[in-house]
Amino acid sequence: MSGLLNQALAEGSIQLHAQASNWKQSLELAGAALEQSHRTTGEYTKAMVAAFEELGPYMVIAPGIALAHARPSDAVLSTGLSLVTLSDPVPFGNVSNDPVSLVIGLAAVDHDSHIDLMAALSELLMDVTKVNMLLQAENVEQVRTLLG
């Protein structure tokens, strides 16, 4: 009886109040959480960092929120998410939305099959109150309750 977001966040995919001193470490935390929850291999984390280097900080999609992702590839074992909150906000170099406190890692096996998941994620991230509660969550259970 859990929603799409909780299903997408497999065991090991949530890390709270993590420490990172720059965008790269922040993306690596989101990547490591995807690896730990068996969504991706280490190659995907490298691809996310490379994508950021190539395309810039556009992954910071809203104030304080980064959506870390790379292209669908063999490095994606299954579609899913990771969620990392940062104890100290990290500047990513995005003029309108820095600094980042919440990093969502996204892995998708193709371009289409995760659309329902993105709709659920969009609904969550549009809700400022919920995002603030997420950032303050002390443990994984609180996060899962919040996600429904």
């Binding site: 994508a51 556009y58 999609i61 992702h69 790379a70 998708a108 371009h111 995760h114 993105m118 969009s122």
Partner: peptide, 30 residues
């Protein structure tokens, strides 16, 4: 967006909501 799976999908969904509110017929592709 750069990868076509994240930001562009979110932009598409939210643009469709806005277009619906404005009553504008359009197809939006990510």
């Amino acid at each position: 967006c750069g990868m076509g799976i994240g930001t562009s999908v979110l932009l598409k969904m939210n643009a469709e909501k806005v277009l619906g509110m404005l009553g504008i017929q359009a197809t939006v592709q990510a």
